[in-house]
């Protein structure tokens, strides 16, 4: 792959990771983590590890996002105690 495109992907990777760590809203953090996972899958494919990239795209960007969102909907903002 061209190195310019990979550089853009690396910059977006770092930006999405920092956003998912520092953002206040949990739903935004989950979406940003899915974006991180998908960009990481594209980088794996560009480095030649197609199998690892496939697993990252399916599990990291698909299943884990759904499970995190379900867990966020089961929590409440204020405690009941």
């Amino acid at each position: 792959m061209h190195w310019e495109l990979e550089l853009v992907l690396y910059i977006f990777l770092v930006i999405s990771a920092v956003v998912s760590l520092h953002v206040k809203d949990l739903l935004t953090a989950v979406v940003s983590l899915s974006v991180f996972s998908y960009i990481l899958a594209m980088l794996f494919v560009s480095m030649g590890a197609i199998d690892v990239g496939f697993t990252e795209a399916v599990v990291g960007a698909g299943i884990t996002g759904v499970l995190y969102i379900v867990m966020i909907f089961r929590t409440t903002r204020k405690s009941n105690d």
């Binding site: 199998d51 399916v58 698909g62």
Partner: peptide, 11 residues
């Protein structure tokens, strides 16, 4: 081809 049991099952 790339893929296999785990990836197909997750899909």
């Amino acid at each position: 081809s790339p893929g296999g049991g785990f990836q197909g099952g997750a899909l």
